[in-house]
């Protein structure tokens, strides 16, 4: 019976049809999605921290307004995703508790610091750029609520990448000092950004199953290659240099070849030893704990109003 259901499920998903919340699904499919969507939501929320760091020091009022809108979007993206995750039968508070306890992960890219204003440019251009590359195929993911959330996210994300590129472009066309600042940010963000696509295909244990279930559409290396091919000419255009001495164009394949990626660093950061892991989690826990009284007060206020309404109705 169970076997029969599983076979039907796999054939159904393979035919590009969507699964909706109350439909039968294998336990492993549900678990994979809960893990992936909650990680994704946590990444949006933790991702607000390195950018929020520059709101008070943005170089002009216009830039401040733009950055605030962007950070607010990230909050929104986190909420779309938490909402999608909840349709799989998990409680929001438990999902958040898993982030705070360290049980759930978030994208390791946000464990790097944003040291200068140029980092805000690099984050938008590279980090959001890589995220878009990952997210566009997710708009066709087999789980309906996740796919729909990704459609909204992708629509909003393209402004993020453009604003980041514009910051880099302006700095690169500015004084020698400004250009050096842009180059320095590119130097620091390049490698972590291309690591965002995850481990190489021959070392990515969950990929095959996710591909079979139409959760994942392209392999990590395919997406990484696509990102590099698109980004290198953009860097050249604004006169910045990709910090990879072995990077070269391959006429035959029509792709760039890149130097070796330091996966040891990637693993270190995921394991909690990146420059800002502790700071990020501390900030999230602090926000949650210090917001407790607000949540309680709002609940008490709602109870009081409901009681008043009931009284008036009875009178």
């Amino acid at each position: 019976m169970e076997m029969d259901l599983l076979q039907r499920f796999e054939a159904y998903v393979a035919s590009e049809k969507k699964i909706e919340p109350k439909d039968w699904m294998p336990d492993a499919y549900r678990k994979t999605l809960i893990r992936q969507i909650s990680q994704h939501a946590h990444s949006e929320i933790v991702g607000m921290l390195p950018e929020g760091n520059w709101i008070s020091r943005a170089p002009s009022l216009k830039r401040k307004a733009i950055l605030m809108a962007k950070v607010q979007d990230e909050a929104g993206h986190g909420l779309y995703l938490y909402s999608a995750c909840e349709t799989l039968g998990v409680q929001r508070d438990d999902t958040i508790a898993d982030l705070h306890s360290g049980k759930a992960k978030y994208s390791s890219i946000f464990n790097y610091p944003t040291l200068t204003w140029a980092d805000i440019g690099a984050v938008g251009w590279l980090v959001d750029g890589a995220a878009i590359m990952n997210q566009v195929p997710l708009c066709k993911c087999s789980y309906g609520p996740y796919a729909r959330a990704m459609v909204r996210v992708c629509k909003e994300e393209s402004f993020h990448q453009r604003q980041g590129f514009q910051i880099m472009m302006n700095l690169a066309q500015g004084t020698a000092e400004q250009k050096a600042m842009a180059q320095d940010a590119l130097n620091r963000w390049w490698w972590p950004s291309i690591m965002m696509f995850g481990p190489p295909d021959d070392n990515s244990p969950n990929s095959a199953q996710s591909m079979a279930w139409n959760i994942k559409r392209f392999s990590n290396d395919e997406l990484r290659q696509k990102f590099i091919d698109l980004t290198v000419p953009q860097a050249e255009l604004i006169g910045l240099t990709i910090p990879d001495p072995q990077l070269k164009w391959n006429e035959e394949t029509g792709h760039y070849e890149h130097g070796p990626i330091d996966w040891k660093e990637f693993k270190q950061v995921i394991a909690g030893h990146g420059p800002c892991n502790k700071e990020r989690l501390d900030a999230r826990r602090k926000a949650w704990d210090e917001g407790a009284w607000v949540r309680e007060a709002a609940a008490a206020h709602a109870d009081k109003r409901a009681a008043q309404k009931a009284n008036t109705a009875a009178a």
Binding site: L79, Y80, S83, A84, E86, T87, R92, P145, R148, A149, R295, A298, A299, H301, A302, R305, A306
Partner: peptide, 11 residues
């Protein structure tokens, strides 16, 4: 369009 948590209808 999706869901959210709130203490009451106004919120």
């Amino acid at each position: 369009v999706g869901s959210l948590h709130a203490a009451d209808a106004e919120m």
